[in-house]
Structures are given as C-alpha cells and as structure tokens.
Nucleic acid binder design. Structure first.
Lengths: 169, 169
DNA sequence: TATTGTTATACTCTATAACTATA
DNA sequence: TATAGTTATAGAGTATAACAATA
C-alpha cells in the first residue's frame, strides 16, 4: 500500500503558526478542487476526447431548451466572448451545436444543442456525475449539505465583493 | 446596487431534480475556487507582475530552508518536471531563486530562495493573505473550521482513490 | 537499468483589442 | 453611440516524449 498523504500545495503552510485559518482553508479548497478537476479532465479526454470547457458549454445548453446567446454563455462560463466563439466553432464543426437566428435582432444568435449533441452529452453527463459522486463519496449526506451551505456563503460574499470592487474602482 | 447573483456554472443544474447533491456541491466548489483564484491571479499580475505557479513555487521554497529538489517541487505542485524547470529558469533569471548542488548526487540540485527572493516573497505573501482573508470574510471562525475539516475528508478520500486507481489500472 | 533534470514541442485555455454588422 | 459577435494574436499553463548525465 502506497503512502496516501504526500506533500502538496498545503505543505507551504507547515510551521507558519501566525497564518490565519482562512489561508489554510483556501489552500485546502484549492487542493481539493484541483484533485477532482484533474480527474474530470482526464476522464473527459480519455473517454470522450473532449475538454472541460467544451463539456461546460454543452452542459449550459442542455438546461436551456431554447439555447443561449453568446454573451449569456460568456457570463455563465466566466470567460470572454472570443473564447465562446472558438468553442462554439469547434462544437458546431462536429455537428453537436448550431447557431440559430434570433428574431428581431440580426446581430445576435442563439446556440442550441443538436439532437446529436444532446445524445452525446447525456453519456458524458452520466460519466461526469459518476466521477463526482465517487470523488465526494467519503462524505455523509449531512456533510455534503453542510459543505454546500457554507460554500454558498462564500460564493455570495465573494460575488458581492467582486461586484463592489468593480463598481468602485 | 448591482444584482449580485448572476447565473454561473451552477446554472447548468436548474431543473435537474434527479441529480445527487454531490454534483451540486462539486459545481459550487468549482465556482468558489474559480472566483477566488481569478482574484488572486489578477492581484499577483497587477501588483507584482507575477503568476500563480511562480508564487506557488516560491511559497514552497519559503517553507523549506534547505530548498527542494526539482522532483519534490513537481510532486507538490502537481505538474510534470519540465514545467518546474521552466518556472525555475524564469525565477533564477531574475535572481529570486538559485540552483544548489546536492552533495552525493551529481544529477540532482536543490532550488533555494535567494535573499532577494525571500524579500520579494514576503510582500507577495502578505498581499495574498489579505486577498484570501477578504474572500473568506463572510464566514465565522467556526464555519471556517468546519469547512476545513470537511474538505480534509474530501482530500483524504480523493487522494486514496487516486492512489488506488493508479495502482490497479 | 533506473533516476534526475533538461529540452523541444504541441495543444488548450485565456484575455486583449481591433473589427464588422446591426441596433 | 452602443451592443453582438468575430477575428487575430500573444501569453500562460500544461503534458508528452526524447535526451544527457549520473546512479
């Protein structure tokens, strides 16, 4: 049996007694996310020959029956518009999504999953869910709920802070 | 006051009642990490003209008075060796770290912070800590402790699973 | 043979900024 | 003028694989 606890990002804190707990928490948050994200990226690449941003874009569309406009995708995925164009071009080239005209605004378009895209996504989503459930399998239902609630507070606080700092530069 | 809760990655779950809570938790974890990480990267770039991997490497060295070998840095930062060489080259070119011979193994070297590197790092670490404390400022001490403990369980479980899956391919 | 570190390379992801077309 | 989307580009970040020197 190999040793499970290797040194990692958190190692940089050893011996720094004066660091607030918030810093320890952040490093642990980062480590957990990176560990799970690496597994998800590897799975998407090996089993589906795709990437996380491509999966994310399709996941957004799967929940939007009428599709989403480019700028809406840009906001939700937290990346700038040019990147959405690029990913959309790839997926459209493979017939997984399509651009649909928007009535009343000839500048805009909605991006929609094609039937082929919907079908492929459902397989990926199933695998993705299994990876995540496995990764978080060490927690009880109650612990999952607690984490979800507390991270909700973090998210609300950070989003507020970001908004305010953008509004008052 | 601008609306704080925009749609984001988590939006892809709306309406999917059959999804386990684990998936919701994962998306929230990812969103929180990305939000904070974006702020940290922006701060490092704007205030110190550096990047997160460079900061991470220096942070590892700051806690290792005798420096660290390349393969040790590679393990801790969870990236492959060639990248460590690249970052080390940059930092060494700016006089912030140095390669030191290892007695008894002429293949290896230890990477150490120089006095200049140590000095620059201390300023960055102070700012970094302030950003993180601000980002997590919406939580009570008790909530921070709870999150830290629960994420510790996640980390242990994922690391065990990764190790096992690597050992039994 | 195995390990340490380096080099070369390719690819994904991202932001920025200039651009076109439409509102 | 402002907005929706595109294009072009540069740079960060990463993995892979071939390589040299040493163990």
């Amino acid at each position: 049996m190999k040793k499970v606890f290797e040194m990692d990002l958190e190692a940089r804190l050893v011996g720094q007694a004066e660091h607030p707990e918030a810093l320890r928490l952040w490093l642990r948050l980062l480590t957990c996310t990176q560990l799970i994200e690496k597994q998800v990226r590897a799975g998407l690449r090996e089993q589906f020959e795709t990437t996380l941003p491509r999966f994310d874009l399709m996941a957004q569309l799967e929940r939007a029956p009428d599709g989403l406009k480019m700028n809406e995708l840009s906001k939700r995925m937290m990346v700038t518009g040019g990147n959405i164009t690029g990913i959309t071009d790839q997926l459209a080239g493979e017939g997984l999504v399509e651009r649909v005209d928007v009535a009343g605004d000839r500048r805009a378009c909605r991006i929609c999953l094609t039937p082929a895209g919907r079908k492929q996504f459902s397989g990926m989503a199933r695998a993705h869910e299994a990876w995540v459930v496995q990764a978080l399998g060490g927690l009880t239902d109650k612990e999952v709920a607690t984490l979800h609630r507390l991270l909700g507070k973090v998210k609300a606080h950070v989003k507020t802070a970001v908004t305010l700092s953008l509004e008052n530069p």
